[in-house]
Design a protein around this nucleic acid. Structure first.
Lengths: 157, 157
DNA sequence: TGTAAACAAATGATGAGTCAAGTACTCCTT
DNA sequence: AAGGAGTACTTGACTCATCATTTGTTTACA
């Protein structure tokens, strides 16, 4: 409330806690990485979200329910519906109603999608390598381990 | 092109490279963290971006040009203009044209902003602590170091 | 001096994500 | 065998971020 308290809060060290500094570091780095990836994908007519759906479908290798795809991304349901619509319009996926549960719609890659994905594979791999070139392999493993630990410690909803 | 090549690309290991795995880990973790922070801030009538501008201004302690604020975030210029407009509308900042360079508009916190920021400080600090509670202090330091190294290795634009 | 390049910020159009509500379907209960 | 709860999406309205372009203003240099 008072001016003295206000200036007291102004610290030489820019962060109030190690946790805050780490959070901001993760978010800043992520933004930077996302921008670069998005740029490369845009040159191939895809958004990051669209590509992620395709990547997940390829990884799975068989048709998947929409919401299961959403789960593997951070995406919420309505977003997936729209991405699926876009990819359908591009002819990159098919959507079929499941016979076992007619609430479920399964999506799968079309033959058109495969060459597109393969065309992107190498440049994307190169980009990934370049973006993280400043870190050693061992650091990357450490990074992955710590982040995994962090995520597992965050209870959902 | 052929079906055999396609299935050849399907690996048991879900990631093509350590770098890709690390990138995705950073992005997923960031999304998770952002969601939580955004939720807390929304309860206080702020978006993450708006709060970041206020935080940077408080950290600086004196008026700053818009673009300098943008630089400290990842934000691109047009985004800042709009956030500044929003914060102006809320009465949380002032904007004055610099007398030295009339292209420049400097923004600064109003007295209204300080109590709001202080009100948020403690819950936010607690949230940061909770979100990263699964990692040890030493891991957090390592995390910060590696991410900093990664960011410094990414040439801008 | 005058004119072009560079710069800070604003603007308009577009697109992606989020929330709230709605539809269609399944499963569970009694 | 209803009735109700829950699930898998869908849709519409809205907000926020981004791109491309434009408006002032300053600097550089010819």
């Amino acid at each position: 409330m008072t001016r003295s308290l206000q200036s007291e809060l102004k610290k030489r060290h820019p962060f109030d806690s190690l946790e805050q500094e780490a959070t901001l570091a993760v978010m800043r780095t992520s933004d930077l990485l996302e921008n670069r990836l998005a740029r490369l994908l845009r040159e191939n007519g895809l958004t990051l979200t669209q590509y992620n759906v395709l990547r997940i479908l390829r990884g799975e290798g068989k048709p998947m329910p929409c919401l299961e795809v959403a789960d593997r991304m951070i995406q919420v349901a309505p977003a997936i519906t729209r991405v699926v619509d876009q990819l359908l319009g591009m002819g990159l996926i098919t959507k079929t109603q499941s016979v076992h549960d007619r609430r479920v719609f399964e999506i799968a890659l079309t033959p058109t999608a495969s060459p597109l994905l393969r065309k992107i594979d190498q440049p994307l791999l190169d980009l990934h390598t370049n973006l993280l070139a400043a870190a050693t392999k061992s650091d990357l493993k450490t990074l992955i381990r710590i982040l995994e630990q962090v995520r597992s410690g965050i209870v959902d909803n």
